[in-house]
């Protein structure tokens, strides 16, 4: 993964890895070597170590980012800082005559310029992150836990739901406005897996995830509970509203024209939903009640929804 992303930044890397040996060569040609006993090792450790750190940062940042303005700015900023630290470090080993103005420049100019460019890059990164967060808000709300993300649907898992429910239930108690939890389950998902294979089943789950996200409000949270069951937290939502959302979601899925990836065959999908509402309850209790409501809905027939009594 990191290698694939780094390949996007091939030319930047060539530039950097080309510069380092060249500057080494220039110092060796122009300067007089410092005697081994006179080298200040503490300085070498500080400046050389700093250069190494900055190199690691640029590796990590570029390895995790697509190409684009923000990546370029971050790269340029870090590279300029690296140039200064590297040049400082070379000076510990070679004494370069004062007549060589380029050395003084390289030791002084790139650092402040680099810092300015890096700051600009960080500001842009912040703006970019805000746009991304708005896009992801129904998936992750205000917290990010990359360890609890489901690999198939890229939704948060039940553990994350548990945490968020605890927060939301505390608020519900304080503000006396209930939290609703909906469990939504595809009918006959097992049969789809058997007929079309697990790969198609996973693809369907991804499609349903997108469909559900489109139909949810800001502030709602969609999680993958387990297998084909989705959990949707609806903060500050009354019973009537939750009922309406449940019927909207199940009918959105009923009218969804999903086509299989190989033959393009139309697969009819229906979903059942169970909703539970609470002002004060533990997250586990609420999940249990929503699950019970879901099994009641399933008893009624496919494509139905039920409210917990």
């Amino acid at each position: 993964m990191i290698l694939r992303t780094l390949r996007l930044h091939r030319f930047k890397w060539l530039l950097l890895t080309g510069y380092l040996p060249l500057s080494l060569l220039a110092a060796a040609l122009v300067g007089d070597p410092v005697r081994w006993e006179d080298v200040h090792w503490l300085d070498v450790f500080g400046e050389g170590g700093g250069a190494l750190m900055v190199l690691t940062w640029s590796l990590l940042i570029l390895g995790s980012r697509p190409a684009g303005t923000v990546s370029n700015l971050l790269f340029i900023g870090l590279s300029l800082i690296l140039v200064t630290l590297w040049q400082d470090n070379l000076d510990e080993f070679w004494t370069i005559p004062d007549a060589q103005l380029w050395d003084t420049w390289l030791e002084n100019i790139p650092m402040p310029v680099g810092m300015a460019v890096l700051t600009l890059g960080l500001v842009r990164w912040y703006e970019e992150q805000r746009v991304l967060m708005a896009q992801l808000s129904q998936r992750e709300r205000f917290m990010r836990e990359h360890r609890s993300i489901d690999p198939v649907t890229r939704l948060a898992s039940a553990d994350y739901l548990n945490q968020q429910l605890a927060i939301e239930l505390r608020r519900a108690r304080r503000e006396c406005s209930p939290v609703s939890l909906m469990m939504l389950d595809l009918d006959g998902f097992d049969l789809i897996n058997r007929r079309f294979g697990a790969h198609e089943g996973d693809r369907l789950l991804q499609a349903v995830t997108e469909l559900l996200l489109l139909n949810l409000r800001d502030g709602d949270l969609l999680c993958r509970y387990a297998a084909d069951r989705f959990a949707i937290m609806l903060p500050q939502t009354s019973e009537a509203m939750a009922d309406l959302i449940a019927s909207e979601l199940t009918s959105a899925i009923r009218h969804f024209a999903y086509r299989s990836s190989k033959e393009g065959e139309r697969v009819t999908v229906t979903a059942s939903a169970g909703v539970a509402l609470a002002l004060s309850a533990s997250p586990e209790e609420l999940m249990q009640r929503a699950n019970r409501a879901l099994s009641e809905a399933k008893q009624t027939g496919s494509g139905c929804h039920a409210m917990a009594g």
Partner: peptide
């Protein structure tokens, strides 16, 4: 996370 057991 006992949820997968419950659902499956």
């Amino acid at each position: 996370s006992p949820q997968p057991y419950e659902v499956n």
